[in-house]
Design a protein around this nucleic acid. Structure first.
Length: 505
DNA sequence: CTGGGGAGGGGGCCC
DNA sequence: CGGGCCCCCTCCCCA
């Protein structure tokens, strides 16, 4: 019985001890957890303070370094100052700039100063610095970004700078980048932009990619610039239409300076052909250069954009401004009599044209001389010259015939102030040049209701419609034969007269 | 080969 | 100045 009681007693003792032990463990755990939380909080706060102090230290060092550079290299500081202005939204670059990734090792103020969080791995810095570029358009981008990546994130930087250089990305808001950036577990981007306050203000635990983007380099690629918008390819042989010195022709466009430098004097074909209003179809949005006279005041407003040509010599121009005189051009089969003449020199140009007229047996007593002396158009082109250009454009036997013989050779009696924007040929009235330009545009606004044929001129349509009506108003007095065209009758009458005006030489 | 028909492009004149 | 008309030259095609 006593043994039984002892057993019960021991069991109760053990139970009590177990309960007490569990309570003690629980209490200990609770204490540990609380202390741990407190310690973690303190550690976190210390880390924050540590980061803040580090950044302040680095910014002070940056400031010192920048002032040091200011004393030694004013241009660099100018860049930085402009960049700071951009960071504050105070302005924009007036000139072209080119951005590149500056190696971290070349960073004058960040050497050996990687901003790293505690325990982070290797860090790299990508600093994109703005440098002046010679010929980049006003829309050139300016991108200043200092990025610390953990481990590696060079692709991000490359993407940003590539986008900026290619101009594919519009000016990007900082928040947009923040929303698209990958979430991270710790702050990893440090932005160095603008004033010290700006930087300090950016020190938050939120993760942001801050990007200063003041514009897009939308003109870095001349090929895309020229051709992309209108979807046309440059004429593969358009260069063959050109002769002489092309350099005086200047095209202002959004062209990357590097490309321009690479091409050197050998301008892109599309540009050079664009600069030849007399040789190629032109599409100009602006033609305000008075050095060329008041030629073609109409056409520039008619065809504001597009690409067209009868023989596929497609030229597309988007916002070009032409300076200097219109150069003479010549096809390969023409005698390059003006070769060596300096473009842009009016006297040379006129001299050249005199030789042209002489060499082509064009009547030099034509009013084009007086025309040349009094009309500003003369500085660019005379009608007799324009025929040459027309020939160059189409390079066809038909065009050559027009140059050698009749056609427009007879019409210099009136002042031809209206020049075709495609071939520079002069016309006496706006209507005439309008009609003529349909040759180049292929526009046939007059269509026959009977056969769906289309014509560029109303009188041609009317003449054609005699085919359907059977009307033949021209009757031969000798044989009573009837013709629908007066010219046909005249030609026919030579059968009776025996006149053969064309003899083989 | 020649003549004829149809058409394209340009210039001039008149209203 | 624009529209219409006429004239001219030329080319292409066909019978």
């Amino acid at each position: 019985m006593a043994n039984c009681d002892g057993m019960v007693f021991h069991t109760q003792i053990a139970s009590i001890m177990e309960v007490q032990a569990n309570a003690a463990v629980a209490e200990i755990c609770k204490l540990v957890d609380d202390d741990y939380a407190v310690f973690r909080l303190e550690i976190t706060q210390s880390q924050k303070e540590n980061r803040a102090l580090r950044r302040k230290l680095q910014l002070l060092e940056m400031k010192v370094a920048r002032e040091r550079v200011l004393a030694s290299r004013p241009s660099s500081v100018k860049i930085l100052d402009r960049y700071r202005g951009m960071a504050r939204g105070e302005g924009h670059f007036t000139g072209g700039h080119r951005s590149f990734v500056k190696p971290a090792g070349l960073n004058p103020w960040r050497d050996d100063q990687p901003i790293t969080d505690e325990g982070s791995g290797t860090s790299t810095q990508h600093v994109i610095v703005i440098e002046p570029a010679e010929a980049v358009g006003p829309g050139a981008s300016s991108l200043v970004k200092q990025e610390r990546t953990e481990g590696e994130d060079p692709r991000h930087t490359r993407d940003i700078q590539a986008g900026a250089a290619a101009g594919v990305a519009p000016p990007v808001a900082l928040e947009d980048l923040a929303t698209t950036s990958q979430p991270r577990t710790r702050p990893s981007i440090t932005e160095v932009s603008g004033t010290l306050n700006d930087v300090l203000k950016s020190e938050t635990d939120t993760e942001t990619h801050r990007l200063l983007h003041t514009g897009s380099d939308d003109g870095s690629d001349p090929e895309r610039l020229l051709l992309g918008r209108l979807g046309c390819s440059p004429a593969p042989d358009s260069k063959d239409l050109l002769y002489g010195n092309l350099s005086p022709r200047i095209v202002h466009s959004h062209q990357d300076s590097s490309d321009a430098l690479e091409t050197g004097n050998d301008l892109p074909r599309s540009y050079t052909t664009e600069m030849m209003p007399g040789s190629m179809p032109l599409v100009l949005e602006t033609q305000t250069d008075l050095s060329r006279g008041d030629w073609n005041p109409y056409s520039s407003s008619v065809y504001s954009e597009g690409c067209l040509d009868k023989k596929g010599e497609v030229i597309v121009i988007d916002e070009v401004k032409v300076e200097g005189d219109a150069p003479l051009t010549c096809t390969a089969d023409e005698t390059p009599i003006w070769e060596g003449y300096s473009q842009g020199n009016t006297s040379d140009l006129l001299h050249c044209r005199d030789r042209l007229e002489t060499s082509l047996n064009v009547a030099t007593h034509s009013p084009s001389h007086a025309f040349r002396d009094h009309d500003p158009v003369s500085t660019s082109m005379a009608p007799s010259d324009s025929r040459i250009f027309f020939n160059q454009v189409f390079n066809s036997d038909r065009a050559r015939d027009k140059v050698r013989g009749g056609g427009a050779a007879s019409g210099n009696s009136k002042e031809k102030r209206f020049l075709c924007m495609f071939c520079n040929k002069g016309f006496s009235s706006l209507q005439k040049v309008e009609i003529h330009q349909r040759v180049h545009t292929g526009e046939n606004p007059f269509n026959c209701t009977q056969c769906e044929k289309r014509f560029s001129r109303q009188d041609h349509l009317k003449r054609h419609q005699r085919v359907h009506t059977g009307e033949k108003p021209f009757t031969c007095p000798q044989c009573e034969k009837r013709f629908s065209q007066a010219g046909d009758l005249k030609r026919h009458q030579r059968v009776h007269t025996g006149e053969k005006p064309f003899s083989c030489t």
